[in-house]
Design a protein around this nucleic acid. Sequence first.
DNA 1: ACCTGAACACCGTTCAAGT
DNA 2: ACCTGAACACCGTTCAAGT
Lengths: 217, 217
Amino acid sequence: MSRPSTPAAKASVGGPPGRRYHHGNLRQALLEATVQLIETQGLDQVSVRAVAKMVGVSPGAPFRHFPTRTALLTAVAEQAMDRLREEIDKALAAAAGENALMRYRALGIGFFTWAFGNPVHFQVISTRAVIDFEGSSLRARNDEIRAVMADMMRDAQAAGLLRRGDPVRYAVAGRALGYGLARMYIDGQFPSWDVEDLNPLQEVIGIFDQFIASIAA
Amino acid sequence: MSRPSTPAAKASVGGPPGRRYHHGNLRQALLEATVQLIETQGLDQVSVRAVAKMVGVSPGAPFRHFPTRTALLTAVAEQAMDRLREEIDKALAAAAGENALMRYRALGIGFFTWAFGNPVHFQVISTRAVIDFEGSSLRARNDEIRAVMADMMRDAQAAGLLRRGDPVRYAVAGRALGYGLARMYIDGQFPSWDVEDLNPLQEVIGIFDQFIASIAA
DNA sequence: ACCTGAACACCGTTCAAGT
DNA sequence: ACCTGAACACCGTTCAAGT
């Protein structure tokens, strides 16, 4: 469904098993195989052994690069966070000249673009049971984005762009709305809502825009 | 953290192993032990074997009542749905005389009350990877609630209670907001937001109320 | 330095055998 | 009818041994 994780798939993922002594870049190959496995079999079907077999190494080999299964999936989540950050930075750069509320909107659209374009990554990063969110870089990087969102809403209020009400509450609401919408989409809940499924990303942006409009002064 | 799942815990859950031939009500005892295990050890630590041991039966015994581990957790989710429905019905009964928008608000508060009062149940029902949502009663019962929400918003619009915009979009937004907020709370994201943690339930209702106010005419 | 392959303690699930 | 307990094919993880 979603595009592969990197521009070029590593040799051994699809190629002949080749059982070389040194793999070359086992770490990255494992990450890619993990994403591929989730795409095809689902997150719960990901076993370290299956990933190892897919890459053509022995069951114990991955443990030289990732101490636990959780660490492997956490590394996938960290790559996901890299891409989310890229998408957000791109969106914010494009909206540099606009007001605080429109920059908040741009950030939100960056998030949706990322989530819908990388559903597996979104799924992994939002499945806390399977990654180490607190013990990795994820918590801090997540908090950074949160802080940016809160600042934007405070700026928007200072600029008189918001109707009355606590701006941080609006920021939290926007975050929860975005998270909830992405999750509903990934979980396949959209068809049952009367949501026109022309383009789910467009539809979600429409709902988000309606939210933005409703909190604007 | 959360209260036990039923008024009275079954005998064998805490009592002496007693290894009786007939358990009496193994099915229900398994469900309760599962919830308890999730509370103490986390969802990922739930194994059928651990649940069996907790209840004092052999590893194979649960499979007479639940064909798979997924079926066991799905049954927990179905009990969760029972309670959600009760909470919603109670809230709607209390708001019977009010207008459509206020009834939507009441439904939302019923949802929050349930989610915050039964965090384990919320977690199970919202962890799709671990239950059979589509192949159980969950899909239909979820759709029923969705339909009620959409109808309320349409009624609210017909009664001139909403600012302009697609009422179904508002309904979806409210649902996603509620889901996202509950999820953020369960995942422990509240502390990092400047959200005053007096009472998280109160805070969430405050955010939800701000949403309701922002879409009102 | 990096990987293999056997080993250990788990799991989910099945099923003949007991009561 | 309901449960036991052995069995099977998995898993995550470790570690001595190979290259």
